[in-house]
Design a protein around this nucleic acid. Structure first.
Length: 255
DNA sequence: GTCCGTATTCACAGCATGCG
DNA sequence: CGCATGCTGTGAATACGGAC
């Protein structure tokens, strides 16, 4: 029969889902702690003034959590958009490369005869080649690939290494033929098929790996900076708003 | 005959597994 | 143990044609 107030035992778990629900639908630029607290009082039909501080702390905690989540989500969304841009840019670039390669090969075939492969001998790598080794170059990875190996940037060999690590970790190799990989959801999304051959994997991977130059640069840093500033301002606003409100609140409640 | 320019091809690292 | 398979970009080697 102690339903009127929470003065003796404050139970945060009781209010968490409701606070989260309110915050998730509320306009964070306008919402204040006081409003949320009032909403809780109405919803639960109780007076929270004896545990006001605890309730306020709880609301602030959930608010910060939500802000963090939203910031992270925005970051992910941005990255995804970048990935989509990268994919499109890469696709266009590929098509253009193909066209130019065809053009040059057609042109050359009429002028010069190719060097027979048998005449070549193995050559040691020059210092220049070692320094500019394209195999160690960091490439930009697609979103599907990111979902599997958890990174957006890696050299091609690293990607293969990480992918095999993932396959082994999740025991996705076909026991009867270890060159066959049974795709889970993530790999199915990546390879667009339920099973894939180990060698075929590399072929498909090329569609998910892009040169950094192929990625269209965006004003990512600047916008991120703005976002974090906005978040801080929002928190500050709520605090200030709440302080003012609380003073009023306090006096009005005391009355 | 020699030199230069152009076109073409190869080797390189890295990863995995199976087969000869 | 070495090769096969698949992919990647760059630099070097090679071969040929044309100009002088």
């Amino acid at each position: 029969m102690s339903g009127d107030t929470e003065s003796d035992s404050f139970n945060p778990d009781k209010y968490l889902p409701t606070i989260d629900a309110i915050l998730s639908v509320a306009n964070l630029e306008e919402v204040t702690i006081k409003r949320i607290r009032n909403a809780l009082q109405e919803l639960f039909g109780i007076d929270l003034s004896p545990t006001k501080k605890q309730v306020n702390d709880l609301i602030m905690e959930r608010y910060h959590d939500l802000i963090d989540k939203r910031a992270k989500q925005e970051e992910l969304d941005k990255e995804e958009m970048e990935k989509q841009d990268a994919l499109l840019a890469a696709k266009l670039s590929r098509e253009e490369n193909k066209r130019s390669t065809k053009r040059s090969s057609r042109k050359s075939s009429s002028n010069n005869t190719p060097v027979p492969a048998k005449t070549r001998k193995s050559r040691p790598l020059s210092e220049k080649q070692i320094n500019n080794n394209p195999f160690n170059r960091e490439m930009v990875l697609s979103n599907e690939l990111f979902n599997v190996i958890g990174t957006y940037k890696a050299s091609r060999p690293q990607v293969v290494k990480l992918l095999w690590a993932y396959i082994k970790d999740n025991n996705l190799q076909n026991p009867s033929d270890k060159r066959q990989i049974n795709c889970d959801d993530k790999l199915t999304n990546l390879f667009k098929k339920s099973t894939v051959g180990a060698f075929e994997m590399n072929k498909i991977l090329s569609k998910h790996i892009f040169k950094p130059d192929e990625v269209v640069p965006t004003s990512y840093d600047e916008s991120t900076k703005t976002d974090s500033t906005n978040i801080e301002q929002e928190v500050e606003k709520i605090f200030n708003d709440d302080d003012d409100d609380d003073d009023d609140d306090e006096s009005s409640e005391e009355e």
